[in-house]
Write a protein that binds this DNA or RNA. Structure first.
Lengths: 357, 357
DNA sequence: CCGTGAATTTGGATCGGTCTAAATCGAAAC
DNA sequence: GTTTCGATTTAGACCGATCCAAATTCACGG
């Protein structure tokens, strides 16, 4: 019923109306065994009666223990990251932390602003999926030593922070291998910015697989595009500009692969019948495209949970030292860990034998 | 360089090393015109030198002005909500607020826990896309009068809060009309829980369109399913259980429509050729399915921005009264607004004329 | 009746900012 | 030379919690 106002009720109010001291109420709040059972229930009843809500900000001001974690993600509208974010939030909530969200829209500038703004809210940790073109130094400058950081998905060179990433090289290797087994010999690597670390790693795995098969890569097999469906569709033609055109393509990711398939169809080619395509990520659409896309699955939601676990480990890791400052020191001192998670090939109908001309 | 520790630098430290009082430093922080230009630049230099970062929690403890907004969403992995969240965050960040994320996984229980946890962080406002089966009273109990709320997408009866929703009835009406124009006379409404407000509204629009065409609805044309692809695919058969089977279906949403199309194909029917299907939401996959899905677009990112604007209006709305408590009072007192945004029909290839047997 | 120790409770400082009312300081005005 | 005034600065309380050391209470043994 809009109408009942008055300022919010605090621990002092409770103390007053229960006839005990603020300290006692505080002990009740924290489930201390010190307080008498009768007192406890009296106070707890009052909590309910007046609808008391805890002010965590005030508490962590005193304790110097924050209960939030910042999640900075480059593109929420990408289902891969949305799933990731859901996983992060799930695990953080389970551990009693709240998620501070920041999205950067893949802009290093916005990322900087977002980080600065988030740091003012004193997160206990940061999970960062860096925008393309992030500068390690600037990011460091924004975060300083104030919180442990987990870098996800892209590299941040020499940051000295923990990192969680997919086994990009191995994934691309698997995809290429798969195409080789179908009998392809002319295989392109399509899409992505060669500057980005994930693209570089995927290209490496691809190159290694071809090398292992004794195949030399033609320059025209390497096509760069923005990692979007649209750009990919537009660039499809580049594959067929010259002789020795490829019969298959390992794509940077699913978005690019879906775009390429559209582009192929526009040229009268039939992906999955006379041209083979693989993706990366296994976004939900991959299973529904025509033809369904052979791709590499990484289970982004599980990655999100994992990322959360990793920062939480840095944050709370050392149960031995209760002192928050010391804890931070120790955890920051431990050597940064680089966790690489395997990806698995999901074979669908977009891969096929090379067309016999 | 991990190694440089020491406790974080505070405003008092700055004051000390600049030889001014804490009050002055505080004035500098807040760009007050009171402070002398020389002093200001001296202090600002010190900020940079030592890498000072503002502690917003401490500040808002005193000012009673929070700079965060809670966003509670039922399913982040749904691209519709992911886009929505991105839009919310974009607009909030632009206004200097930070987003506290909470996802409920469509569970009223989790939603309650999430809300309680978020409220402890004292958000200035709440944007809530309620989980199915939310109980207005419990939600009210968690939030109380502590923050203005914007309810998105689903109704929360008698909550007295602002609401932003899609014009569900009109959308379904448009879709049904479109099918009628193709010549269909036996049109089903497929999917969704009839209990949910959005489903009810869509069914209403559908029913009205049919009524307008003088068509009576057969009970078997109304099929309930969970709003997921899988369930929808499994229930496809229900449409053809009896005589007077439909030749087209207005689906609850895109996920259901995509599922239904799969289910149809499994039965040897060809959606877009001998059975017409429409969706709702225009998720990215809708354009890529086979056949591409006729559906209703709502631009979720823009909705997110709009939702953010609406809470911000409640939060900051009254520039006249500087007193925060008074402001909250006034804004909560203003009559709740229900904003309904139009949706537009995107015609693709999943709709066709009825099959001539 | 008093000392003793365990069980409870508490006063008051503290976290890092902001706010209010009052102090300080030159310089212009009388 | 004192008063006055605008410009600047500041002391100290305060926001809502926690923490520490010390105080209080109470039952029990001597």
């Amino acid at each position: 019923m809009p109408g009942s106002r008055r300022r919010q009720v605090t621990l002092s109010d409770i103390a007053a109306s229960c006839g005990v001291s603020r300290a006692t109420v505080s002990l009740v709040l924290r489930q201390s065994p010190l307080v008498n059972a009768q007192t406890r229930s009296r106070v707890e009843a009052e909590f309910k009666r007046v609808g008391y809500v805890y002010n965590r900000a005030a508490a962590s001001l005193r304790t110097r223990r924050s209960s939030s974690v910042a999640l900075v993600v480059n593109d929420l509208s990408n289902p891969f990251f949305a799933e990731f974010a859901a996983g992060v939030d799930e695990a953080l909530a389970g551990a009693g932390y709240v998620t501070l969200l920041g999205s950067t829209g893949e802009s290093a500038e916005r990322q900087q602003a977002v980080l600065l703004s988030l740091m003012e809210h004193d997160p206990a940790g940061v999970i960062l999926s860096p925008a393309e073109g992030s500068d390690t130094l600037r990011v460091r400058q924004a975060i300083g030593m104030r919180a442990p950081v987990l870098v996800f998905n892209r590299e941040l060179r020499d940051s000295g922070w923990d990192q969680l990433s997919l086994d990009n090289a191995d994934g691309a290797h698997q995809a290429t291998q798969h195409l080789l087994q179908w009998g392809h010999r002319r295989i392109a690597f399509f899409g992505g910015h060669a500057g980005s670390s994930s693209c570089r790693q995927r290209r490496e795995g691809y190159a290694q697989a071809l090398q292992g098969a004794g195949i030399e890569i033609e320059p025209q097999w390497l096509v760069e595009t923005a990692p979007t469906r649209l750009e990919a569709a537009a660039q499809a033609g580049a594959l067929f500009a010259r002789e020795r055109a490829p019969t298959a393509a390992v794509c940077y990711n699913d978005a690019v692969a879906l775009g390429l398939m559209l582009g192929l169809q526009a040229r009268g080619r039939v992906p999955g019948a006379d041209f083979a395509v693989t993706g990366f990520d296994d976004i939900p659409e991959a299973a529904l495209s025509v033809p369904p896309l052979t791709t590499l699955a990484a289970d982004p939601r599980a990655r999100g949970r994992q990322a959360a676990q990793l920062v939480l480990a840095r944050i709370g890791g050392n149960a031995g030292s209760e002192n928050a400052a010391t804890q931070l020191q120790e955890s920051l001192a431990a050597a940064p860990a680089h966790t690489v998670v395997p990806v698995r090939l999901i074979v669908r109908a977009s891969t096929c034998a090379p067309a016999r001309p």
